[in-house]
C-alpha cells in the first residue's frame, strides 16, 4: 500500500490518546451534566437592613471588600489607628469580627455563601472569631 494515506500508524495508541484528550478538554461539560449552579443568594441581617448602607457603597463593597480589609488590618496592626471614616463621614471601628460581623452576623448565609461559590477560603478565621456575639 503506497503511502498509507487512509490508515493510521499505531492506530490503537493514537485513538486512546485522542480519547484521553477529549475527556480532559471537555471535562467541564461532562462533569456538569445534569447540574445547575445558580448564583448564591446572600441574606442581610435585620441589623444590616436597618443600617441601609455598608461601610462603603455597594459596588465598592462587592468588588473591593478584601482590599478594604487589607487596609484596615495594616492601619490597626502597623499604625495603631482604629477609627475609619468613610467618604460620607461615618465613623467605623476598623475590626473584622466586631464591625463586619456585627452587621453581617450571619456569616454562613452571607460571606460564606459567596466564598463557597467562588472557591475563596479566607484564612482570617484561623485567628479571628467568626461569631463575636456567641451562639
Amino acid at each position: 500500500m503506497p503511502n498509507n494515506s487512509k490508515g493510521m500508524y499505531n492506530k490503537n495508541l493514537v485513538i486512546a490518546g485522542i480519547v484521553i484528550f477529549v475527556i480532559l478538554a471537555a471535562f467541564p461539560f461532562w462533569f456538569n451534566v445534569g447540574r445547575s449552579a445558580p448564583a448564591p443568594e446572600i441574606i442581610l441581617t435585620e441589623k444590616a437592613i436597618a443600617a441601609e448602607d455598608c461601610v462603603r457603597d455597594k459596588e465598592y463593597m462587592t468588588l473591593e471588600h478584601m482590599q478594604l480589609l487589607d487596609v484596615w488590618r495594616d492601619a490597626v496592626v502597623r499604625d495603631g489607628k482604629r477609627i475609619y471614616v468613610n467618604p460620607k463621614g461615618v465613623e467605623f471601628n476598623m475590626s473584622l469580627s466586631n464591625t463586619c460581623l456585627d452587621c453581617h452576623s450571619n456569616k454562613e448565609e452571607f460571606c460564606d455563601r459567596c466564598h463557597d461559590y467562588t472557591s475563596v477560603s479566607p484564612y482570617c478565621w484561623d485567628c479571628h472569631i467568626d461569631n463575636p456575639q456567641g451562639d
Binding site: 503511502n3 498509507n4 494515506s5 487512509k6 490508515g7 493510521m8 500508524y9 499505531n10 492506530k11 493514537v14 490518546g17 485522542i18 484528550f21 477529549v22 478538554a25 471537555a26
Partner: peptide, 16 residues
Amino acid sequence: FIGGFIYKVVDWAKSP
C-alpha cells in the same frame, strides 16, 4: 480547538 486538535493528530498518525 477540539476539532482542530483531533484533525492534526489524525493527520500526523497517517504519516509514515
